[in-house]
Design a protein around this nucleic acid. Sequence first.
DNA 1: CGCACCACAATTTTT
DNA 2: TTGTGGTGCG
Length: 785
Amino acid sequence: MDGTEAVHSYIESKFMHLNPMQRKAVFATEGPLLILAGAGSGKTTVLINRIYNLLKYGCASDCEEFPRQFSDAELEIIKNGQVEADCLCALNPVEPWQLLAITFTNKAAGELESRLESMLGEAALDIWACTFHSACVRILRRNADALGYSTGFTIYDTSDSLAVMKQIVKEMDLDDKFYAPKSLLAEISRAKDARLSPAEYRRQAGFSSDLYHSKVAEVYEKYTDVLKKADAMDFDDLILNTVNLLDYNEDIRNYWQNRFRYILVDEYQDTNNLQYLLVSLLTNRENNICVVGDDDQSIYKFRGATIENILSFESHFTECRTIRLEQNYRSVGHILNAANSVISNNLERKGKTLWTAKSDGSPVELYVADNEREEAQYIASVIINGYGRGENWRDYAVLYRMNAQSNSIEYALKSHNIPYRIVGGTRFFDRAEVKDILAYLCVISTPNDDLRLRRIINVPARGIGLKSVETATEIANENDLPLFDVISHAMSYEELSRSAVRMKEFANMIDELRDYAVTSSPDELYDLLIEKTGYIKTLEEKNSLEDQSRIENVKELKSSILGYMNDSGDTSLEGYLANVALYSDLDNYDSDADAVTLMTMHSSKGLEFPYVFIAGMEETVFPGIRAIGEASEMEEERRLCYVAITRAMKELRLIAARQRMLFGRTNCNRVSRFVDEIPENDIKKNVPKGYGYSEPSSSTVFPGGSKYSSPVSESAYKVKAPALKKEEPLPELELGDSVRHTAFGEGVVIKMTPMGGDYLLEINFSDKGVKKLMLKSAARYIQKI
DNA sequence: CGCACCACAATTTTT
DNA sequence: TTGTGGTGCG
């Protein structure tokens, strides 16, 4: 055995907890590498171990010939795997700060960071584990001056951009039906993704001489001007500007290329064109770029992701190696078969078949409910039964296509007292009240933030109307002054006389807060802000149910401030605001809370649960109506289905409703085609007898019409799980009864909660404390005394 | 200027 | 069905 072989086998011995393919991915450190990682194939583990290998052994595992000659004694040490071998086998090990690991969400970045930290300790903190956007922000905070921005530039989120766009549409006197601000933003986003400057866009629009596009060109120019003037970048700008920065400045490009010896990109199938450009500009001459992705899990085409990036990685980066991770460690055989079989109907894919060493498990179950209410009841009853058997609430997830579907499910869970939590929907930082307070903080921090100033100048109402604000804005524009200056000198402008006093009062308050901010921490500023503006007080006076939750949210913002100061050790207001701009709700999601999770299939990507329900398995719902008849859209829906199915570890239940009320309309839909794409052997169809959808060969069309909404169909799932009706008093047990349990001894019933035809008992046992039991399952162990 | 009421539309979403 | 945005009145 020569030195090189010895080194390789020594390093290999350090990664024996990985499977051969995973190890291959860990060891291929040099040059471009594409890792096609199927769902649940342990790709994060691979990423972590790959980084560990780089830091520890550098490129040793991937060298054809180890450059150093070993003495016999050294060779012995390596062969015997003695601790000293670690140093001997290292070949140009990577410094933590030379690594860039890019993910899509803050949550994924955070997870990566914390896993690295527990493996490597302090050193891990120097690794750049961040999202595309935060990586760009870090680069731009150093070099934005080269583009004519200040390094303290502001980040506009989607609603800020929308506010700007609405203003522009108004100023240009465009019809907002034909030129909907949202579509305009989408069009601009597309232009930016194609890396078209406003001028280039105009040139292209000129060729087609079509009115719409030339108007859009004008809008694009204006929008760019407004943001530039405000020293602000929107989310696309963060990437576009970084791409431009690197492309046009050789020095800066060289600096960053030299700095990052190795780059890793996770979820590569979700990258757009700009992100691809960014990655190629950051990649150094050695082409040490490793991307991980799964073309079958690309579900974000609608926001610009192009599956093309992963499909053509091999041509983008020549001499690239490709490794497939196909062993799935998550799901049971039947579930995996179902997933494989569904996705095999797609044509546009690299091709990959997952396998598992696990047993078959139980087949996927299809339940056909009468309507969305019964669908929800069925879900609740299955969960309750599971809980009664000792499962945790957190082991269950309910996935759906649209947020609008969550309502009926929430209702059923609520009525059975099942704890649940919804992921997604309106994000915390998107809530109006939260944005208001943040806008105050922005205005305090940045005096020329006109956009945020306009938002809060009359919130809570202080008698400064829209008209006055518009007049002030005009004055500001004419004199090229920040709006705030005009407000604070409102007395000197005749046109503002009506609200001058109130404006002045407002400006004084902001000035006061600004002074205070200099000497105090953000949380103290928050307290004074709430007091001075009377924000919470105003809400309290209204005292409606929604205002109650608004107050909660505003208060919650203080926890967010304190949390940031705690985690980062940064006590600057600017730091907090910059952080918030790139923060989302998903980051808040903690899987520790014992509650059922409700979310869209999109949000579920990257997560796993022992028990999964997919609700709304009907044509027009899933696949959605827009995808039907559109081949490529249908493929995206199918990938979404694949993602959803592969979330499940042990049991997967699909639910279709014969009738569904959505947006106030009742529809009857066929069971989803995706159900038919699951092999008969892997699915158990649980369809109450006497209904249209039944045994294999027969039609899958639901007979429409009213006869099926008759009471006959009353809760068919109860046939399977005959249950006591909720109203029926239980003969044996009452609140306060003393009981003896075979395992827990004597106790008193302290609470009885009806749940899906059963009861959740809470019994205070004298020896074992309070236990929660389901009456039906516990009855045989309990005796009344 | 503020508030109440009515019309309208509504996949999916991270940053 | 639900939420939002625009209009009109006090």
